[in-house]
Design a protein around this nucleic acid. Structure first.
Length: 635
DNA sequence: TATCTCGGACTGTCAACCAG
DNA sequence: TGGTTGACAGTCCGAGATAC
């Protein structure tokens, strides 16, 4: 008769493990006549406290070692790691907790503590206003690596519930496009920032600008941090929240799905590239440290009415005080010292938003325009200042501030917020064209300066673009390709088109598209998946995932349609997931599906990056078969 | 035959509830 | 306050499916 020993966590210790096993052995020896009973009852083998991701996926026994024996035997040692568990036990009654109550949490406390270190508390009385913020640290694939405790207050979801899952899982399907575009913008921001690692600080401003233009070019983004990266756990939140040198900050109101799936919660979201682990967009060798930070706040109707004369935080390092994240980032008085003419030296000029490029993303690309047109006040982009890693070139940006798109009424002429600097500074914004500029909160002065800058940039761009047709994306391309969308630049259209088409023939790809090809996660946006599928990795750079020998794969036989060339990202879905897949993304379905199993599968996909998938073919089997790519086949 | 998938049993954890 | 209950999450057995 076997002994049914409780699987106490203490049994994880080797000593107790041995005791329990021996007890079981004794029990079996004493009662071998009850085979039927013993066969029904579980053996007393204690469960490990945490199974590795591979064993969990396979529903197989794991052990305490890492890599576990099973992973070693199955050649999956490189992907053998623990996953973050959800909170066990009966959940607290969610209805008992008032929404958005600001309970002290470790995360918040740490973040608050960071205020003194990384934030500038410009006005003392602003500290009286405490607004809870929810922070998400995401991989460059928008998979959640770490989430602050406020997730429960905001969405009724525990931080663990975000683990390794895509951000798309938590937003309404209608916002997929918005998030996708933000994602794309961040990727472009990362990929097309100046590749000139060294800019001579002694050069004159004009020379510096030219040098910046010349040294700027598209570059390849190396494999970045996965959601399981140690840094997400090891680094304190305030450090992770540090913005990467050169990153843009994108603001958008995104509607999230709460724990009560029938209820949605709109939140103001700010996205920027995280530099807490040393990522610096100026230094190409640090790009693999990149990740994405998303800060969420509850939309504040009063914020839009905030008077510019109210105490506002100065955009310094992180550009705002963390307890004022909900506020529009009005510039402080010293913002006026900045002029658009000074912007190019620090802006990521190598944006190539070739809107009319005849790529598979044509419609999506054009939607960038819609993005702003449809809701011009939603997108907020500001120049970041940086943290301690700021270079000399970026030091001039430390006072960058940018309150641009808030629902607030246009500032008064006496307001220090007279110039929407981010518009002129951001090539992304520039790319949107004047038609995309919100009319309500942009002063004429600002528009004129924007157009002046565009013209200047375009003039510099023309010869450069013609000479560098082989470049994937350049700032000059930005200046030319945005022309069709810019009514004020029509005089450049003809030239721009010729240059653009020539450029298009050479590359066909934008920076973020290169990234889509390199970071082959099913949790990427539909756009990314579609692009990676359509381009079939033919032009993928050196960082591309090694091709997977699908001839050994089961799903190749199961699911591969005729004449379909398989690539990791575009691998067909498994039969188990195909039923729940949707064209928008697999995210929505996974959220609404059954808890444990679906989460398990979802997280497994999130773990899958180019590196993991390329690690070994057998280990890719599961992932590949789990990827939902129903929409891929529709392309 | 080997390997993989996955339903579901079993068990741990924890908040809510309740009796003393 | 301590015990009980219930809800939920994690582990992994084992049956069935699939590949070779």
């Amino acid at each position: 008769m076997s002994l049914s020993l409780p699987c106490n966590p203490c049994t994880s210790s080797p000593q107790l493990l041995d005791i329990s096993i021996s007890a079981n052995t004794n029990g079996d020896n004493n009662g071998d006549d009850n085979d039927n009973e013993s066969s029904k009852k579980r053996p007393a083998k204690p469960h490990v406290k945490t199974a590795c991701v591979n064993c969990k996926k396979a529903h197989l026994a794991c052990d305490l070692t890492r890599p576990c024996k099973r992973c070693v035997s199955s050649d999956k040692a490189d992907t053998c790691h623990d996953i973050q568990h959800k909170k066990r036990g009966r959940p607290k009654l969610r209805g008992m907790k008032p929404m958005h109550c600001h309970l002290p949490s470790t995360f918040t406390m740490i973040q608050s503590a960071s205020t003194s270190a990384n934030y500038v508390q410009q006005h003392s009385n602003s500290s009286n206003y405490q607004k809870p913020t929810m922070t998400l640290f995401l991989s460059m694939e928008l998979c959640c690596a770490r989430v602050s405790d406020e997730s429960f207050d905001f969405l009724g979801l525990y931080p663990q519930e975000f683990s390794h899952r895509s951000l798309y899982d938590f937003i309404i399907p209608g916002n997929n496009g918005t998030v996708s575009r933000i994602h794309r913008s961040l990727l472009d921001n990362a990929v097309t920032f100046s590749s000139g690692d060294k800019i001579n600080n002694d050069t004159t401003h004009h020379h510096q600008q030219q040098q910046f233009q010349q040294t700027s070019k598209a570059r390849l983004l190396p494999p970045t941090q996965r959601t399981t990266a140690e840094m997400f756990i090891a680094l304190p939140p305030y450090q992770l929240a540090t913005i990467a040198n050169g990153s843009l900050t994108l603001k958008e109101t995104i509607t999230f799905i709460t724990s009560d799936k029938s209820r949605h919660q709109p939140l103001d979201a700010r996205f920027y590239l995280g530099g807490g682990s040393g990522a610096d967009l100026i230094r190409s060798d640090s790009l693999h440290h990149l990740y994405i930070v998303c800060i969420l706040t509850v939309p504040d109707t009063n914020a839009s009415l905030a008077s510019p004369s109210e105490p506002q935080s100065l955009l310094n390092n992180l550009s705002f005080t963390n307890n004022r994240l909900d506020e529009p980032l009005y510039s402080s008085s010293n913002t006026l010292a900045l002029t658009t003419a000074s912007l190019p030296e620090i802006q990521p000029i190598a944006f190539a938003q070739d809107q009319l490029q005849l790529s598979p993303l044509e419609l999506e690309s054009a939607s960038i325009l819609d993005f702003e047109q449809n809701d011009p006040q939603q997108l907020d982009m500001k120049r970041p200042a940086n943290d301690t890693t700021g270079t000399a070139a970026m030091e001039s940006t430390t006072s960058w501030t940018k309150p641009y798109t808030t629902p607030s009424p246009p500032p008064s002429p006496s307001s220090p917020i007279s110039l929407p600097l981010s518009i002129s500074s951001s090539p992304y914004r520039e790319n949107l064209g004047n038609a995309t500029c919100p009319s309500s909160d942009v002063s004429l002065h600002g528009i004129k300066e924007v157009e002046t800058l565009k013209k200047e940039t375009a003039e510099v761009a023309k010869p450069t673009a013609a000479a560098t047709a082989t470049a994937t994306a350049t700032a000059t391309a930005t200046a030319t390709t945005q022309a069709p969308f810019n009514s004020s630049s029509k005089q450049l259209s003809s030239t721009s088109y010729s240059i653009r088409h020539h450029h298009q023939r050479q590359t066909h790809q934008q920076p973020h598209q290169l990234y889509y090809q390199s970071m082959l996660s099913s949790r990427l946006s539909v756009e990314a998946q579609a692009f990676a599928s359509s381009t079939k990795m033919l032009t993928a750079p050196a960082m591309s995932t090694p091709t997977y020998n699908v001839t050994k794969s089961r799903f190749h036989h199961r699911h591969t349609p005729p004449n379909t060339q398989l690539y990791p990202l575009s691998s067909p879905s498994s039969s188990s997931l195909s039923s729940s897949s949707s064209s928008s993304s697999s995210s929505s379905s996974s959220l609404s599906s059954s808890p444990s199993s679906s989460v398990c599968r979802t997280s497994s996909v999130c773990h899958t990056t180019a590196t993991s998938m390329s690690s070994s073919a057998p280990s890719s089997l599961y992932t590949l078969s789990s990827i939902n790519t129903k929409n891929i086949h529709l392309l």
